[in-house]
Each structure stands twice: as structure tokens, then as C-alpha cells.
Design a protein around this nucleic acid. Sequence first.
DNA 1: CTTACTGCAAAATCTTTGCAACATC
DNA 2: GATGTTGCAAAGATTTTGCAGTAAG
Lengths: 145, 145
Amino acid sequence: MSGKIATAKEQFRQFITEKGLKSTSQREDIADIFFKTTTHVSLEELLKKVRRKNSRVGYATVYRTMRLLAECDLAFERQFGDGQTRYEHLIDDSHHDHLICIKCGAIAEFSNQTIEALQKRIAEEMGFSVTNHKMELYGHCAKCQ
Amino acid sequence: MSGKIATAKEQFRQFITEKGLKSTSQREDIADIFFKTTTHVSLEELLKKVRRKNSRVGYATVYRTMRLLAECDLAFERQFGDGQTRYEHLIDDSHHDHLICIKCGAIAEFSNQTIEALQKRIAEEMGFSVTNHKMELYGHCAKCQ
DNA sequence: CTTACTGCAAAATCTTTGCAACATC
DNA sequence: GATGTTGCAAAGATTTTGCAGTAAG
């Protein structure tokens, strides 16, 4: 409720500045819309959304902006097996993992602290320091059983 | 030590027969070499290995054979973020997950029964029956820290 | 002004598929 | 023999990149 925490937008601007890059309206728009998205968007989908606000944005710019966002951990790549790379963020939301129905494609999210803790410990035992992870459970959802 | 358990090769042959498909030397060679592989091979790599034994095998056949193997759960697709689909099997080996170094690309394997049990329980609570899962931890390995 | 960014279109990657020749059953 | 399989080459689908024009610092 209090405590100044930088918004994702601010973090992105800071990253841009620190790297000596330039802030542009395209980057602002893309980041803005991406942060407002709550699903796992593909570049194609994101481009479509961005174009509703600014019709003269190219696919390549979305591609390159998402690469920047991924570089500063404001976006995470996900691949669920259809040949599309998807992106998601963790704004206003803690880390979560996915349950994917292999029949209807439904995606549910979950998170579990015990698993997270175990992952960290296992990694440490093997000499790794973990910065990120993916966990996806594939199976049939309630409707498709 | 005792107990007749069908080998992966036999399971594949059975799957082929049951589906009314035909057994060919290419399929035998590809499955053979794949089962002997202990890493996460891409189609490209697998094709190269297969061609050392039989130089007249095409990429498409490897592709189609791996699809068959995946269909009968003798091969599992993995995508680690470089744009390559990789395959692995669980022969002579229980299920395992991956630790991936984001600097040098090293891949380590691990498995943990507690996590597996928790995954199952979580999924059930959400109405899913899990048949498969992926868990990948990304970070820096001992050498790259 | 200098350096970075953009959009477009072309290139590069991978993955899939059509088809005539060929191998199983 | 009938039907499935193969290899090749072409088609698809995405992801990357080169470049001339444009914009931010």
C-alpha cells in the first residue's frame, strides 16, 4: 500500500537508459500493452494489439522490444509445443507455473512454494544458482477426461 | 534382474503393428540409435548419427519416425529455448528434469520424488490428470558463476 | 549532429507436406 | 498386388537481419 516500488514501465525505462539506448514511442506502446496483457501472448497476437493503438508498428520492432524486455527479466519466454514462442510477465502477480490440457489446449496456472524451495535447494546442491524456471504439467483437464 | 520387460525396441515394434503400420529398416535404425543416445538430440544431430550407419536416410524420415516415437511415449519433445526441438527417452533411466546454464549451455539432470508427488497432487486438486511434465531450472552452473 | 531505432522486405531457420519410386505385408 | 514408407524438393511457418530513412539524446 505504501513503499515506492518501481513499476514495470519505470524499470524498463531505467534499463533502456542504463544501456545507453533510446526511449521511443513504439517501445513505450509495446511494453505498455504487454504489461497489461494477462495471457501468454505470441508476437503475432501482441503485434495485433499494439496496432490497434498505433497502426504503423512493425513485427520486427515488437520482436526486438520483447527481446529487450526478456533481457531485463520483465518478460519471460514460454514454449508450449505449438511452434509459437509466447511471452508472459509477472507484474502484479507472483511467479506461477502451468497446467496444460493436451486435448483442448486449456492452460491453468498454479504456484507452490514448497516446490520452489525444493528446486532451489536441488540446484544449489548441484552447484547451480537458479534465476528462472519453467514447470509445465501436461495432461487432461476436468472437462476432457 | 529377472521379469520379462519389453525393450523399447519391442514396444516400438508392437506399436507399429497395432497401428497397422509397417516396420522398415529406416525406422529400426533411427529408433535404435535414438535409444542408444543419452543426450537431448535434435533432429539434425540424430540424422547425422543415423547417416553414419545408413547414409541414405532423409531428414523427413527421421522427423516422421520421431513423431511416431513421441506418439507412443517412447520419445519426449523438449524445447530449451534455442530454436531447436530436442528429443529424449527414459530408457534405463527414470524420469528426470533439467538444469540449464544460461551462460555456457551446460545441461545437468536431476530428479526428485517429492516434487513429482507434489505436482501430481496439485494437478489433481485442479481437476487435471497429469501424463507428462517438463521442469527446467535456468541459471548459472558452478563454472559460470 | 551523432547514434540508435523503425519498418519493410529479404534471408535464414526449422518444421511439414506432396509425390513418384520403392519396400512391406 | 495393395497400401504404407522413403527421400527429395518444395512449401510453410517463424524468427532474424540488412538497410535506408527517421527520430531521440
